[in-house]
Design a protein around this nucleic acid. Structure first.
Lengths: 85, 85, 85, 85
DNA sequence: CTGCCATTTTACCGGC
DNA sequence: GCCGGTAAAATGGCAG
């Protein structure tokens, strides 16, 4: 009877659990594949003579500027609410 | 002359660099989207009554090979005994 | 008149606010210093041959009360059986 | 004979391990106490009429500016090295 | 009690 | 091949 009637083991819905976990694992594989693609591009950049450390610093700076801008806007908005403007 | 002839600035192939960085940023967006999908499934699991923390623990064990898993478990047991837990 | 009479700017008690923020920042520095000390001890443990990952796992178990610990372990076993791990 | 001769259990130096763990746990208590003090000050600020959300945003901005400045300097330095200046 | 945010932990990547 | 630092993920705490 194994391989049938897995409806419940120890009070949990086994097939549902398996299904959820497999969906997540599938997505994690996709995510890992993309991370691998990113690594490939960095390797490509390196062999084209670019300094990947600098590239990462530049990209970080771009993100920080965006975050900073968002933070400024959030702060302004919050002040306005706090002051009922 | 700006906006033309960006072939090189300070000895750097600007357009090539820009292209590489944009490809990476695009992939990072995809990666973030998948991470978001994963969060959604965990939320679904949670509302179906599963304990997501335990799910994650189980998935971690699944990823390890049997030998590593046994090794970790053995070590943990040893330390637990050492500390009377 | 700047540098004097900072009692209020836009209805906010500036000096009070500044004081509060500086106290918090000071405490955050202390906290960071302690975190650094902890890292040092883990490094010491590592060079004495201990597995720091397992040490952390054991310390986590130590923090939990027995009932919660048993509950977690039981749940994990159940999920493992459900997934044949 | 328990409570004596704990030199080794399962091949590990029990007393050394205990000592390391206890030192870490002591420091973690101190760290937690400081975190608690920080919470207290935020509570104090709140009851003095300040908006803690704004306070946190301001503090975050101060840190981001510092981090941004550091990043700029790092980037400049790295470029200089990359270009042998 | 749920969702959000901060902190902590984990995994990755480059350098030595 | 290992170590260190950096970025991502997970956990835990707080506010609403």
């Amino acid at each position: 009877m194994s391989e049938e009637n897995n409806a419940e083991v120890g009070g949990i819905a086994v097939d549902r659990l398996r299904s959820l976990i497999e969906r997540i694992e599938r997505l994690e594989e996709e995510k890992a594949a993309i991370a691998s693609d990113i690594r490939d591009i960095f390797a490509e950049a390196k062999s084209a003579g670019f300094d990947t450390k600098i590239m990462k610093a530049v990209m970080k700076l771009r993100k920080m500027n965006a975050a900073d801008r968002d933070e400024q806007e959030f702060l302004l908005e919050t002040y306005r609410k706090a002051l009922d403007i």
